[in-house]
Write a protein that binds this DNA or RNA. Sequence first.
RNA 1: GUCCCCGUAGCUCAGAAGGAUAGAGCGUUCGCCUCCUAAGCGAAAGGCCACAGGUUCGAUUCCUGUCGGGGACGCCA
Length: 664
Amino acid sequence: MSDLHPAPLAPAGLYQRVRQLVADAIEIGVHEGFFPDAIAPSQVPLERPRQASHGDLATNLAFSLAKVAKSNPRAVAERLIALLKQADTHGLLAAAELAGPGFVNLRLAANAWQSAVTDVLHTPETYGNNRSGAGERVLLEFVSANPTGPLHVGHGRGAVLGDALARVLRASGYAVATEYYVNNVGNQIGKLGESVWHWLRASALRQSALATWAQGDPVAFPAGFPKGFPEDGYRGGYVAQIAETFAVTSEYAAAAHQARWDDDAAWAVAEPENAEGRADNRRVSIAAWQQMLLRIKADLALLGIGFDRWFSERSLHGLENQGANAVADCAKRLQAAKWAYEQESVGADEEGETLHGRAVFFRGTREDMPARFLDSKDRVILRSDGRPTYFAADIAYHDDKLARGFDHLINILGADHHGYVPRLQGVLQALGDLRRQEGDPRAARWTGDRLEVLLVQMVALLRDGKPVPMGKRSGEFVTLRDVIEEVTTAEPSSGRNAVRFLFLMRKADAQLDFDLEIARRTSMDNPVYYVQYGHARLASVLSKAEEAGQPWQAHAELRSLALDDERNLCMILAEFPEIVARAAKAREPHQLAFWLLDTCRAFHAYYTRGKTDARVISDDLLLTQARLSLVLALKHVIHNGLQLLGVTAPDRMQSLQEDAEPTA
RNA sequence: GUCCCCGUAGCUCAGAAGGAUAGAGCGUUCGCCUCCUAAGCGAAAGGCCACAGGUUCGAUUCCUGUCGGGGACGCCA
């Protein structure tokens, strides 16, 4: 999972065979002078017609070809049909028909559509994988929540999207690395340290507060705060919890003896490794965010999400392992390349006091900046007292990404950051130019488009259709862990499955309603159960066949598959790699979720209709084997699809009885 | 004020690169288990794809504007 290599490939599927045929036909047409240019198979548009009478597949290629061939679409389509028959040496097609204003409807030969089953069963684990990503090296950064508090629901949505996208991209032949940027530097980290420090010193109050809190909400703290606790400190109960874990070790207990938090000089003496005594670099602050990060990792693990790398912002500031200060360095390089400048300015320091002096600005408004990346004003990267802004570190971080040689960067951000997107792309534009000036040979065509940002909209939590009361910003005060735990039923993985699937039922830029009541329901209201049930039902048919003494056997004859339903299901199997590739290209794993629902619907319909006159298991041994092959192929495809979403595919639905009861 | 996203069935939402008669679930109405999981299936009803222009053989899809809803605009991170 952590390696950059794309997933292994399945051999070419049915769609690719048909595309090749069309491309071959065009090529014959080129030789005969009908068409000016050949066309790559991957460029052949293929779609499944909505109506069965329009065949198995259709192409609208004649419309685009009509222009270059200087003819009308119908004439081109007729020519194409003749060429297809000529090129079809393998007998893929049963018929090719002209339809409407220029569509070519293709009806596949029976052994052609049946071959979709063989395709799946030949490489069941990798079926669906495709090479549409062409090995592009992608860095996918997501979540990157500050380690100053627990993950909330909105973070969870970004996490699920990012993880599913990574899976879908890898299946499509992209080389993906996933990364979480840990903001472990700055005022907020100092505030976290200060908050913990206050709790650390007030042990009696802490003990009683924690006892009160034990029954309550970990985010909203019910009891009083220690004397001197900062107005803008972190007020959640988890802060007192962290202090409690530190209180037992002498190292952090020692911090409690410091008289004043704002006496930097005294801290510098007490902790010599932090020569400036800065608040975010004190031992208690560092231990605090590290503790918080452990909790974040544990929360993500509940969803089965991990990262290839946890990128530390401290490392950029040269605060780890005597490393270089990349932030300062990057600011200098930008100034040298005229992408930043120093200017007199007025600002505010940490306490909000007015600050005069010369600050360094990033020139996001430079005249050669393309309009789509142009910022409305230049932004400060180094404050007049020399402290870098968050923006400065982000610039250095993205320069580091470029230095590591990724072809493409994808960041998943909360939609509230959308104003930040052009600015960041402007940074990439500038960094590309900077690296060209520095003679980096890879930088020849690096522009702001190298960075792609996916914005994730808010999650609105509902309970039985009614909004869950929350703070001013929805989602912010309900933790991800709370939601997962509330939604978990008797089956341990049910919380993870429900959260993941339901979060992937909407595209990222649409607001999502998440109903806690529905998420733990075991009915059709809950799509994750519908799809899992489809998989379990397929598994059940296979085990029933074994019990009946007719276990599935490899290399079964498929000729007896003849029903319209069976033809449709085979075409669905063939479509799967297309859907994976499409979801990857569009960065929309939700397409896969909808496709799985449609696929299960088609299977349930087949199954139910078959109950009377087309059962899978029958006295006809040949037919039984053919249908079992189809069933097994469907099971693999649903399994693979669920796996790409990070949802488990059970062979049997657990705790059917308990969960079927309405919850009180 | 500037900018971004969204307006599709009563509700919640799909509709890739413009294509054929507009799709699903929920809800409503009516049906389907002697038999592989009824946690299922079938059918009916339900639509000026917000509105007005434009681009072309063709627009729910692309462009412009109007109206309506949501959001962002710090020497914060």
